[in-house]
């Protein structure tokens, strides 16, 4: 019996120890009850896209709107769309292409605020390759991910620029391998967004051809779970959230170093230098001439229709979708930042 006892203690000891250890695991923070809790799911892991919301939070804009704000890292727009679709998070940030795809597959979601008002995707190459226009890609090797909307965007841009895409040697590549492949000269150009910062950090000069020069599409937007939105009082919460977030974006534009400091305090592994450079690039995707003219956050119907057309051609959408109900500007504040 003694042996069996020792055996049992051995075999289950690990499990019991594990459970005992874990019973005191990380606990959720206590929430003040008077504020509405808003859990905001980002498209990806912490980066410059977190900055505007950190600023709105730290400057107290959310608190003033009666919101207790928490933002969470995502694992790609596709997952963010699905998770907000299930209602686990009420609000998220994702690529409009995936929001449309999600709506088509029946997710109860709707875009409510423009964030990137043009596609952030660009053709990125080393200066030495002398690629300064889409025309220059002819005969060159271009790498990008096979999945997602980036590559279809580029194909659409080639059509818009009247350059035959089949004259370009396109190769599929894992997103994390893009920069090393370019630096090691394995490809002539890549499709990307913030990669120029990483490349310049290696002491190389970069040429950027923004696809937004020829494409007029909506890109990343803030979107909500509509089931959540239609619960009493949540429309007011959403209005408050959008107004506060826009204020955060406006404040960030004029106080970049303060915004970076606030973010670094919250996410210490994000370097201030990289964040500043990312914000500088993002500035062009957020504060587009259209957005500056019509007000930040407001989405243009034509930009949604352009996006739908590209996605239809790329077969990312199975059929036409009513873009008029895919998004709404109804929850934006009367006064928009310009």
């Amino acid at each position: 019996m003694n042996r069996i006892g020792r055996y049992l203690s051995g075999a289950t000891g690990v499990l019991l120890a594990a459970i005992a250890l874990c019973s005191g695991g990380p606990a959720a923070d206590a929430q003040p009850s008077s504020l509405s809790q808003v859990d905001f799911l980002q498209a990806y892991v912490p980066s410059s896209e977190f900055v505007y919301f950190v600023v709105a939070d730290k400057k107290g804009y959310y608190k003033q709107a009666g919101i207790n704000f928490t933002q969470h890292a995502g694992s790609g727009s596709a997952n963010t769309v699905k998770v907000v679709g299930t209602g686990e998070y009420p609000i998220g940030l994702a690529d409009a292409a995936l929001i449309l795809a999600g709506e088509q597959s029946g997710e109860p979601i709707q875009a409510v605020m423009g964030f990137y008002n043009t596609t952030p995707s660009s053709v990125i190459s080393l200066k030495a390759a002398r690629i300064t226009s889409l025309q220059d890609l002819v005969g060159k090797t271009l790498a990008s991910e096979a999945a997602g909307s980036t590559t279809p965007m580029w194909r659409a841009a080639m059509i818009a620029a009247h350059v035959p895409a089949d004259k370009v040697h396109w190769v599929a590549i894992d997103p994390s391998a893009k920069v090393p492949s370019l630096l090691l000269g394995k490809v002539d150009a890549i499709l990307g967004q913030l990669q120029p910062i990483q490349i310049e950090a290696q002491g190389k000069e970069v040429n950027i051809v923004p696809l937004g020069d020829v494409l007029h599409v909506i890109a990343d937007t803030v979107f909500v779970n509509t089931a959540w939105l239609h619960k009493p009082g949540n429309d007011r919460v959403l209005r408050g959230f959008i107004a506060a977030s826009l204020k955060g974006m406006e404040y960030t534009k004029d106080h970049i170093s303060e915004a970076v400091d606030l973010t670094n305090a919250e996410y210490p592994t994000l370097s201030k230098d990289v964040l500043s450079k990312q914000l500088a690039m993002e500035h062009h995707w957020i504060w587009t001439p259209d957005a500056t003219a019509s007000g930040l956050g407001k989405m243009d119907n034509q930009h949604w229709q352009n996006l739908e057309k590209i996605l239809l051609e790329a077969k990312i959408l199975r059929g036409p979708i009513a873009v008029d109900t895919a998004y709404t500007n109804a929850y934006l504040p009367a006064q928009l930042p310009h």
Partner: peptide
């Protein structure tokens, strides 16, 4: 953690990787 997390070493690896912060 790679499927979405606010904490953890896997999450930290993703953040570091997105910044080409290979030492981290």
């Amino acid at each position: 953690e790679w499927m979405g997390a606010d904490h953890g070493l896997g999450n930290e690896m993703l953040i570091a990787n997105s910044q080409l912060h290979t030492d981290l």
